[in-house]
Amino acid sequence: NQASVVANQLIPINTALALVMMRSEVVTPVGIPAEDIPRLVSMQVNRAVPLGTTLMPDMVKGYA
C-alpha cells in the first residue's frame, strides 16, 4: 500500500512545512504520496491541519 503524508503536529494556516511536521503512514483515503515529502518542505498550507490529518493536494499552496 502507498504511504501518504500525515501531519505530525497541528500545522497552523499559512505555515511553511518542515520535515518535523510530517510523517508517512498508510491511510485511507490516500493523500499526497510520502515520496513527495522533500518537495513539500517550505510550501505553505492554506488551512489549519490538525495532528494526524492526511495532507491532500488542495491543502498545500502550489502543490497541485
Results as ranks from 00 to 15, higher is better:
S4M: 02
N1M: 15
V60R: 00
V45A: 04
V6A: 02
Y63N: 04
Q9D: 09
P38C: 05
L17R: 00
L51M: 15
P38D: 08
M59S: 07
T54L: 04
M43Y: 09
R47V: 13
M59L: 05
R47K: 09
L40E: 00
L17M: 05
Y63D: 03
P50V: 11
A3F: 08
V20P: 14
A18G: 15
V30Y: 13
V5D: 02
I13W: 13
L17E: 03
T28R: 04
L10Y: 14
M43N: 04
L10D: 15
T28Q: 10
M56A: 08
G62Q: 07
A7N: 00
V27S: 04
Q44M: 15
V26T: 10
V20Y: 12
L40W: 01
M56S: 06
T54G: 01
M43W: 06
D36I: 06
S4I: 02
V27G: 03
R23K: 10
A48P: 08
Q9P: 01
L17I: 12
S42C: 10
V6Q: 03
V60S: 01
A34I: 07
P50A: 14
R47W: 06
P50H: 11
R23S: 07
M22E: 03
V49D: 03
V45T: 13
G31M: 02
Q2P: 15
S24Q: 13
L10N: 13
A3L: 12
M21K: 03
P38A: 10
V49G: 01
M21A: 04
M59G: 03
V60M: 04
I32W: 02
L51C: 08
S4G: 04
T53Y: 12
S24H: 13
R39S: 09
A18S: 14
P50W: 06
N14V: 03
S24D: 11
A48Q: 14
R39M: 15
A34H: 08
V49S: 02
D58W: 12
M43E: 04
T15H: 08
M59W: 07
L19H: 14
I11D: 01
M43F: 09
A34G: 13
R39W: 12
N14R: 06
I32E: 00
P57D: 05
A34K: 07
Q2R: 04
L19D: 08
A18R: 09
R23Q: 06
L19M: 14
D36F: 09
V41P: 01
K61S: 12
R39L: 14
E25D: 12
Q44S: 12
R47G: 05
A48Y: 14
V6I: 13
P50N: 10
D36C: 12
V20G: 10
S42W: 06
E35M: 10
L51Y: 13
A48D: 12
M59Y: 09
P33E: 04
L10R: 10
V5I: 10
D58S: 08
G31H: 02
E25V: 07
V5E: 00
R23A: 07
V20C: 13
L17A: 00
V60G: 00
A7K: 01
G31L: 02
Y63H: 04
I37N: 00
I11F: 01
A16V: 14
M22P: 01
P29W: 03
P29I: 05
I11K: 01
N1Y: 15
N14Y: 15
T53F: 09
R39V: 11
G62D: 10
Y63W: 12
Y63G: 03
S42Q: 10
S42P: 02
A7L: 03
N8H: 07
V49T: 04
L51F: 15
M21H: 13
G62C: 15
R39P: 01
D58G: 14
A16W: 11
G62T: 06
A16E: 12
N14I: 03
A34C: 07
M22Q: 02
I37D: 02
V6G: 01
G52L: 04
D36R: 07
I11G: 00
V26L: 11
R23L: 04
A48S: 14
N46P: 02
P33W: 09
V41Y: 05
T54N: 02
A16M: 12
P12V: 06
N14Q: 11
N1H: 11
I11Y: 00
E25W: 05
V60A: 00
V26S: 10
V27H: 03
A16N: 15
Q2S: 14
P33Y: 12
R23N: 10
V60F: 04
L10Q: 13
P38S: 12
P57L: 05
V30F: 12
R23H: 05
G62F: 06
L40T: 02
Y63A: 03
L51T: 13
P29Q: 05
L17Y: 00
V20L: 13
Q44C: 14
L40Q: 00
G31K: 02
N46T: 14
L17H: 00
Q2V: 13
M21P: 03
L19E: 09
L19I: 14
E35S: 12
R23M: 06
V27A: 06
P33M: 08
A7T: 14
G52S: 06
Q9K: 13
V60Y: 00
I32F: 03
I13T: 11
P57V: 08
M43I: 04
V20W: 15
M22A: 02
I37V: 06
Q2F: 14
L19Y: 11
M43R: 12
M43G: 03
A16I: 15
L19R: 12
A48I: 13
R23D: 06
I11E: 00
P33N: 11
V45I: 06
P29M: 04
V6Y: 01
V41N: 04
I37W: 03
M22T: 00
T54V: 14
A16F: 12
I32C: 04
V6N: 01
P12T: 07
Q44H: 12
M43S: 08
S42H: 14
M56N: 05
S4F: 02
S24Y: 08
I37C: 05
A18I: 10
A16Y: 13
A48T: 13
M59Q: 04
G62A: 09
N1C: 06
T54S: 04
N46S: 12
T28A: 10
V20F: 12
N1S: 15
L40Y: 01
P29L: 04
G62S: 11
A16H: 15
N1F: 15
R39Q: 07
Q2W: 13
D58A: 12
N1K: 06
V60P: 01
D36V: 09
R23I: 09
K61A: 11
D58N: 10
L51G: 12
S4L: 02
P38I: 08
A3D: 09
Q44G: 04
N14L: 07
N46I: 11
P50R: 06
V45H: 00
A3C: 14
S4D: 01
L55M: 11
V49N: 02
A48V: 14
V27N: 03
P50Y: 14
T54Y: 00
K61Y: 09
P33K: 07
T53I: 10
